[in-house]
Amino acid sequence: MRPRAGVACVLPLALAGCQGWQSALDPQGPQARSLADIIWVFTGVAVAVWVLVAVALAAALLRRRAEPPDPLSRAPDRERAMGYAVGGCVALTLVVILALTGYSYATQKELFSTHEGRITILLTGHQFWWDVRYEDPAPSRVFSTANEIHIPVGEPVRIKLEASDVIHSFWVPSLLGKQDLIPGRQNLVRLQADRPGVYRGQCAEFCGWQHAHMSLLVVAHPREEFEAWRDAQLASAAPPSTDEQKEGQRVFLSNPCMTCHTVRGTSAGAVAGPDLTHLASRRMLGAGMLPLTRGNLAAWVVDAPGVKPGVHMPSIKLEPHELHPLLAYLEGLK
């Protein structure tokens, strides 16, 4: 295959990346849709301008040239016509640029308008995971989870963005554009999904070794399903039922796990790592790095830095007979 044909075959493949659960060109919410509109309008206008300029340039280069005129002779009509052409083009450029600026400004103003939502989430970025706290006027209805945001479909959700260590950036391409999480200040965004589904988000500001593996999922449910999920998350952890799980809880509480993690309903209440109260109800492990399975969980518990170098969870030395009970306990945290 000739090189050019090879390139021509491979390039369309890249377009396959424009669909799926993480694509700004496949908007699933009003914010993403207005951003996608901006992308298309700007691209369209820029392409049109480029084509016009290229055509004019080609015409100037290719046209047959007359004899060079006498430098001393003047043709006032011709010069005036040229003046109008250049002036017209400058005016047109100005109009296009001002129109695009105005359009972009109006969209952004709408995009970043902050309002009180029925649901407010405090999203805190850590190296390299997301803490998701559902706020509520009633303190008993506040809870935390990690790396998974659940929202009701068709309802704007207000998200407060904070960071605990370095600057991160929240980006769910299918639902909204990027917004930074900055230590010491709070940014606000609105998140809305029009269709139930799972959307992937990604940290979009380089934040350290595992920046690439700092992702999160946004799960959009119908309203009743969302309320059921929220009530389930509000509950304390299910007490261990089998003997193995009881032993696992003892291992959890007597090892360093409880120095960093919270399991509501037990004496573990630290906030340096993700809240594990309903760990087994989540889809992914290690901020969207691995699917949550028993094998992955075992690898993670025993040797997190081996799975995700640079992660702040140290490797834990467990006795061989302690691992399986601990896994059984963690898997029971539905």
Binding site: P256, P305, G306, P309, G310, P314, S315, I316, K317
Partner: peptide, 9 residues
């Protein structure tokens, strides 16, 4: 150091 010592060392 890419990875620290194991816990009990």
């Amino acid at each position: 150091a890419l990875r620290g010592d194991p816990m009990a060392d």
